[in-house]
Simulated assay, not measured.
Amino acid sequence: MANGSTDPGIDVVAPSETGGAVARLAAELAASAAVISAQGEALAHFRKLFERASEAARIGVWQCDLPCQTLTWTDMVYDLFELPRGIAVTREMVLPLYPEESRARLRAVRDRALAERSGFQLDVEIRTARGAARWIRITATVECDGDVPVRIFGMKQDITEERLLADRLRHMAESDAMTGLASRARFQSALAAFDAPDDPLARSGVLMIVDLDGFKQVNDGFGHAAGDACLRRAADRLAVACRDAELVARIGGDEFAVIWRAERIADPELRAARIASDLAETVGSGAAKVRIGASIGIARADGRSADELFRAADDAMYRAKAAGRGTYRTAPPRGRGKGPARLRLV
């Protein structure tokens, strides 16, 4: 017998031992509760940090359950689409907020990701519920049960400012700051089409080089401000005269280039004569006046490479200057009547 028990088969635990075990268990439970509470506080803290970071970065998390096409969004995704936070959303409700082109691109990459059990990243334009235009970046991952896709999830980020900045930088790179015409870099890119055998430009396009006559005298006699104003007026008139051209660019100080598709210019020589007439003007008055005009070189593609075409038009322009200025000359067909090559980097 133990602890005064009259039954030899039963051990009786003293009340002091029972109280100690309960105390130890209570202490362990209190410690576990303290850990859980601390973890809960830490989780709540990190959730707030995540929400603040998401708001600052304009990023939200989304999920689509594939069987029912039900969407789950964090608050930032609701904000991106300017929908009330917390409302039930489905793909059928959201897809109309994507313009047709964006919707088609999204459908294509989503279908491919589901078929390949993979993911995707896509930048697309949306129209919010309030009609605002926005650009978002969508990232997605497909989750499978075995080999069956059951969920697709990822993030959506507002990249509107990033897109606008990229557009501004591209515009700056592609536009001439002085005149607003296409820049030399954009002209070089467009000229490369003459090296592409499948581009109609390579078979029948036309290039004109337009160089102002008398511009140096304006700069020397009236100053650079007057010269700049003269350039802008000439550029404006050239843009109007060539509004149906493929590209009108400023490629040098007082030099311009115009690329035409054959179907838009039936008679390049007649058009060049009109351009020369449109660009003619007089700057100043009396003994100080300067006559501004334009010498124009014309070259047809005729199987020429981009470099050969530019040289041909450039040489024709110099022949127009030699002929008295304010006129045009046309490069002979390829392989005939080649003049001395003028190698100039455009």
Rank of each mutant, 00 (worst) to 15 (best):
A27R: 12
E51H: 12
A301E: 02
A42W: 06
G86Q: 01
G205T: 03
A57F: 11
R103G: 12
A294F: 01
P67G: 01
R127W: 14
V150T: 13
T160N: 09
A202E: 01
D267F: 00
L83W: 04
R232I: 14
I87M: 12
A190N: 07
V283H: 08
A287H: 13
S285P: 09
R304M: 09
A132I: 11
Y98W: 07
C230T: 13
P96K: 00
R271V: 05
F310Y: 13
G326H: 05
L345K: 15
E28M: 12
E174I: 06
A249P: 06
D211Q: 05
L80W: 05
R319M: 06
D158S: 06
T139K: 06
W260H: 08
I265N: 03
E174T: 13
D123E: 15
A245K: 01
R47W: 07
K216M: 07
A140C: 08
V77M: 02
D220C: 04
A262W: 00
N3I: 07
V109H: 03
R85P: 11
I152C: 03
I36M: 13
D228F: 03
R250I: 00
Q188D: 11
A239W: 00
Q157A: 09
A2V: 14
D111A: 14
M1A: 13
R264S: 14
R311T: 10
L164M: 15
D254A: 05
A23M: 13
A272N: 01
R271E: 07
T70F: 04
V346E: 03
R112I: 11
D167Q: 14
A313S: 04
A193G: 12
G221I: 08
G60F: 10
A53G: 13
P84K: 03
L247T: 00
T6D: 15
D213L: 00
